[in-house]
């Protein structure tokens, strides 16, 4: 790394650099998203995720049969002209169930992600800004929730009140929030020490306004990466809970449940397993790959901002930006 002892030159020459990096930061997150979406990984990830989202959103309107009606006499019938992907364990049309079985999963995953990220980010930033007893309290709660495996924690919460949809969303969000809080606290600790925060504090600006106006805008990029990771996990956990019978309840179709109820027919009609499995896999891989692209770009942006501010800096040996996520 750079052990630059040369002081940053103070004078007219540095001003353009500062304004340039400030302009870079203002819409940094949009720029990061744009660059990420144009990269190879970003393109692949985004198109996979959007393809599955399109199937889930448009699917219910184009499904050829009812998703819950028993359309045939024969369970696990192989694909035919009438039932393109054959029939499932209760002789329902697999294609219709696949088309209709994604939207609720997506809504729940999105809701759990947003809830978990908002609560976690606020808790993490507050812990970093106030320090003291608030920091201690928040981080102890985080430690306790992180002492459970995520799926075990979610199962425990749904074990008593039963698998109600809102409870699944809250349970999954509760497993996300501590992880987000840790990441955001670490990122915010740096920002809180910056001079511009100290300057605003001296002007007696209320602390809520400082957090909203000064600190959060500088955390949007790490927050985006974290949101992407959490979205992948939401989909995995909610589909997994449905798979083991504690998410969305039958007879309504969903991809996790379909995998489980049709397992016994794997040999007779493999499509009732392959179709939902492929859709879940494409969705999680797509979201994760796009998140990886965003993470790579954001690491590059951080490095560029550092370079502009430090002015003189040894060149890093040609080291690839490898985000370890």
């Amino acid at each position: 790394m750079s052990n630059v002892t040369t002081p940053v030159p103070v004078g007219p020459g540095t001003i353009p650099r500062v304004t340039r990096s400030a302009r870079l930061q203002r819409h940094e997150w949009l720029a990061v998203l744009g660059v990420a979406a144009r990269s190879m990984r970003g393109r692949i990830g985004l198109s996979l995720a959007l393809l599955v989202v399109a199937i889930a959103v448009i699917g219910p309107f184009v499904a050829p049969h009812s998703a819950t009606a028993f359309v045939s006499d024969l369970p696990f019938a192989t694909p035919s002209g009438h039932y393109w992907l054959g029939t499932d364990v209760l002789a329902r049309d697999v294609l219709s169930r696949v088309l209709d079985g994604g939207w609720l999963l997506l809504i729940m995953a999105a809701a759990a992600t947003i809830l978990g990220v908002v609560v976690g980010a606020l808790a993490g930033v507050m812990a970093a800004y106030y320090r003291g007893w608030r920091d201690g309290l928040i981080m102890r709660i985080v430690d306790i929730i992180l002492a459970f495996p995520a799926i075990v924690f979610a199962l425990m919460l749904v074990s008593i009140a039963g698998p109600k949809l809102w409870l699944v969303v809250v349970a999954v969000a509760a497993t996300h929030a501590p992880q987000v809080a840790r990441v955001m606290r670490a990122a915010a600790l740096d920002i809180c020490e910056k001079d511009f925060v100290k300057a605003v504090e001296l002007n007696k600006v209320p602390s809520g306004k400082i957090i909203r106006g000064e600190i959060l805008p500088n955390l949007v990029t790490p927050l985006m990466v974290e949101t992407g990771l959490r979205l992948t996990w939401s989909i995995i956990i909610i589909a997994g809970l449905s798979f083991i019978g504690f998410g969305l309840q039958p007879p309504a179709p969903n991809w996790g449940l379909m995998l489980n109820e049709n397992r016994i027919g794997l040999v007779s009609n493999p499509w009732c397993i392959i179709a939902p499995a492929v859709l879940i896999a494409l969705l999680t891989i797509g979201v994760n790959t796009f998140t990886d692209a965003v993470a790579r770009v954001s690491i590059g942006v951080e490095r560029r901002v550092d370079e502009e501010q430090i002015v003189m800096r040894e060149e890093l040996p040609g080291r690839s930006a490898e985000p370890v996520l």
Binding site: T284, N288, T289
Partner: peptide, 21 residues
């Protein structure tokens, strides 16, 4: 990158399809 995104049950079902069914 692809495998980290896969849920365990999808991996398990793919293995069952390939090696036992």
């Amino acid at each position: 990158l692809a495998i980290t995104a896969l849920p365990e049950f999808v991996v398990a079902i793919v293995l069952v399809m390939v090696f036992s069914a």
